[in-house]
Simulated scan of single mutants.
Amino acid sequence: MKHALGGAIAVTLITSVATAEEIKPTAVSFVDGTVEQSLTGQPGDPVEGRKVFANRKQGNCLACHMNADLAEESFHGEVGPPMDGVADRWTKAELRGIVTNSKMMFEGTIMPAFYVDSGYERPLDDFAGQSILTAQQVEDVVAYLQTLTFE
């Protein structure tokens, strides 16, 4: 019982520390469109990022971007640039800035800001005050994008 309780307290403390490090959407610091600091203090998971990228109800990135790495998925868009070699074109900080709020990098872009929770219009009231992706999902997508190099 003592060990179980101790483990539960340790998990709670670890969770609290991880949550405490998460940067809220309104506190993200942009420098020329880039975001140097991790939004979570945790590394991104490229496997999870690939899932978010492909998920039509989360990132929905394929609606606008062609991505040869996801050739098994249908209906790749052509509105945005292809993702092939994206890690060769942009740094990690630039990719984080683009995914967080591309409007800070590209004036007039139609790409949505994935990590903002105000200053936009949502068609459904249920989503008001929420970002499209969580901070960890942003980090995961960035980690995935970093795997997309020309080789």
Rank of each mutant, 00 (worst) to 15 (best):
K2A: 10
A4T: 08
G7E: 01
I9N: 01
I9C: 08
I9D: 03
A10T: 10
T12N: 06
I14A: 15
T15K: 06
S16N: 08
S16I: 09
T19H: 11
A20S: 15
E21M: 11
E21S: 10
E21K: 13
E22W: 03
P25A: 03
T26F: 07
V28G: 03
S29G: 03
F30K: 05
F30Y: 07
V31M: 07
D32L: 03
T34E: 14
V35N: 01
Q37H: 08
P43Q: 03
D45S: 13
V52P: 11
A54I: 11
N55T: 12
R56C: 07
G59D: 01
L62N: 10
N67L: 12
A68S: 15
A68G: 10
L70M: 13
A71H: 13
A71I: 14
E72R: 14
E72L: 13
S74Q: 12
F75Q: 12
F75R: 14
H76W: 08
E78L: 14
E78R: 13
P81M: 07
P81G: 09
V86Q: 01
A87M: 04
A87Q: 00
D88W: 01
R89L: 14
R89H: 10
W90C: 02
W90L: 11
T91M: 00
A93M: 03
E94W: 00
L95E: 00
G97S: 04
I98T: 06
T100N: 01
T100R: 02
M104L: 08
M105Q: 10
E107D: 10
E107W: 04
M111T: 06
A113P: 06
A113D: 01
G119K: 03
Y120W: 09
E121D: 13
R122M: 11
D126A: 14
Q130H: 14
Q130V: 08
T134V: 06
Q136S: 09
Q137E: 15
V138P: 15
V138T: 06
V141H: 04
V142R: 02
Y144W: 12
Y144F: 15
Q146T: 08
Q146P: 09
T149F: 00
T149N: 08
E151R: 14
E151L: 11
